[in-house]
Design a protein around this nucleic acid. Structure first.
Lengths: 342, 342
DNA sequence: GCAAGATACTAAACCGATTTAGCAATTAAA
DNA sequence: TTTAATTGCTAAATCGGTTTAGTATCTTGC
């Protein structure tokens, strides 16, 4: 029953011409290759008629181009990455590329495995949110002249193309904003990752509390604990030990969710007075009680820049020159939770 | 600089044997094909040494198998689908498959374009959340004996493999729950899609209000309006026109977000008394004020069943027989918002 | 001692495209 | 009129694997 796909050979046979001619016509080289107008028309007409489209696998094998990009993130089910995925998807398809998404769980081993899988698939380029020690692996990719754009995180040790946001400035602004709204005991809850995006955020927090000479309340939860749902325990203990805290800046959206749970469960009244700022905005924060102030990363620009960089790299085969680091600014979406209330 | 990948031919040349032999060894057919233990070892050792992995494009071309699945959803940035994507990703990679995700925006034209793109890539199977009139297109795929599992939505007109949830029962339970908690003017806010998942939900709602002889307040917002951010206007008008409403069941997560905005903006006090139930749970609903009751679809089972079905279809080439429809039950996660408060 | 079977390995076709090199026939230039 | 250039088209190699159909040598059974 399964009628097999029609191939270029079938077309050639039916029209009694060579596959070469068909291929030339299909690739718009009819003129250049001196194929007559008449024959060109005939081929085009028949191709249309049988609704032929070339087998991309065969094309890829021959040309070495797969027209597939990889977007590797920490976790595609995290809203921040899911939104980026959608933006990248749309941009890529517009340019004729498909996108393989994958989640590395911020794990080096998994990242490396995934990258190798994709190399075997001859993907045309990688946009990667790198796990902590992926720099050597990325360096290998670059050596092999494979287009790579690093995303969201930066390796001081590695010259490459980056699209990142100014995380230090973003936390600075957030902490300053809390300070200016009268909060003096500002806690910072983050994960223990040494990765740039987290290190920079921490730096921003520390710079401001030092400058204003206010206490430093930092909680760094081991990353593995967060994925196992233990964040709440850490936050609970932390708040117990530091009852003077009057506001919290959360470094990631999942920490915020855990934090809100602890507050609601352990200190239900506190929600109406404690200062809260979170990284990564969420539609529901607009109607939460209180509405929640968020550091919003410019996802649209991030996606646009990443795509633009990767397409550039793919175009010019020699990616060895002119590495760029594009740093975008986040914005603080001020809502009730970062102001003194009641 | 770019040292090209090593191929099976290079290996054969280096060991002074034929590519056939190398291929047999690599595919575990050494014994069957009577390749001596000694030679087998030698090949394996060298392969290890040079860290060879086969070019999957070439493999795909020859075998017709790409080891790629497609998961087509309405919008990958919608949390419900993003979570499913992650589950499917994990299951697929465990079985040696990669997954191309794409968003069809519930648009038929876009769906068809995407499907055609993927057919050219020889993907091994499709898991599709179909747009409204995709049944004919899907039928073509089935005719061509291409593995397809339909997801989340059902076509009465099309015999196929489905993984869906019992949407009618889910809304029935939700409405009954509201009724039992004393609500008598229960509104239902949905989109105007004629698709099964929405039709079934509406049916469930209507069945219960009829049975209990309570008024039917239904708002059907045109789908296009929701994507253009006009839901709020519709909801606002609807609530104005129907001031007696004491509770609302929202048919999708994005409608809930719009609804909450309207309530907070137009009737800020109402949030503490109005009954609310939403389709699709969200972490933040656990700490929202009030905490929000949700119809939670069994994403894990949905993903598991879909993968299991698609892998079955891929295994036995003849997919023409024994179509299955797997219907899973959603659960009502009861929280404050569906109870009488204050 | 000789046919049959098992062992060890390989040549070549094939998947479906692209691309190089080249052949005939026609046209233009000298 | 002859040569050179152009036009119109194609054979065959290639990408990197898998698989079919062998071949040649070595055992074994009777």
């Amino acid at each position: 029953m399964k009628k097999k796909r029609i191939s270029i050979k079938d077309i050639a046979a039916h029209l009694n011409i060579s596959v070469t001619t068909v291929s030339f016509v299909l690739n718009g080289k009819a003129e250049e290759k001196h194929i007559s107008k008449a024959l060109t028309e005939k081929v085009l007409k028949y191709v249309q008629e049988v609704n032929y489209t070339p087998n991309q696998i065969a094309q890829s094998l021959r040309t070495g181009q797969s027209k597939i990009l990889v977007f590797m993130v920490e976790d595609i089910s995290n809203l921040f990455f899911a939104q980026l995925a959608r933006l990248i998807e749309d941009l890529a398809y517009k340019k004729g590329y498909k996108v393989l998404f994958c989640s590395n769980d911020n794990d080096d081993k998994k990242s490396i495995e995934l990258i190798n899988l994709f190399k075997d698939r001859q993907v045309d380029g990688f946009i990667i949110v790198p796990s902590p020690n992926l720099d050597k692996t990325i360096a290998h990719l670059l050596d092999e002249n494979i287009p790579v754009v690093l995303f969201d995180r930066y390796f001081a040790s590695l010259e490459a193309n980056y699209v990142i946001t100014n995380n230090k400035a973003a936390t600075e602004n957030a902490v300053i904003h809390l300070f200016e709204n009268g909060f003096r005991n500002i806690a910072y809850i983050t994960i223990d990752a040494i990765q740039s995006q987290m290190a920079d955020r921490l730096e921003g927090y520390e710079a401001v509390v030092e400058k204003y000479n206010i206490p430093n309340y930092t909680l760094q939860i081991p990353f593995e604990e967060t994925t196992q749902g233990n964040s709440e325990r850490y936050i609970k203990d932390f708040m117990e030990e530091n009852p003077s805290i009057d506001s919290i800046l959360f470094a990631t959206n999942y920490l915020t969710q855990s934090g809100l749970k602890v507050i609601k469960q352990e200190y239900p009244d506190l929600i109406n007075s404690i200062g809260i700022i979170t990284f990564d905005d969420n539609e529901l924060f607009k109607t939460y009680s209180p509405t929640i102030t968020a550091v919003s990363q410019p996802t649209q620009e991030m996606a646009t820049m990443a795509m633009s960089l990767i397409l550039d790299l793919i175009k010019k085969k020699d990616s060895s020159k002119s590495k760029q680091t594009i740093t975008l600014e986040s914005s603080l979406i001020v809502r009730e939770s970062s102001k003194k209330r009641n």
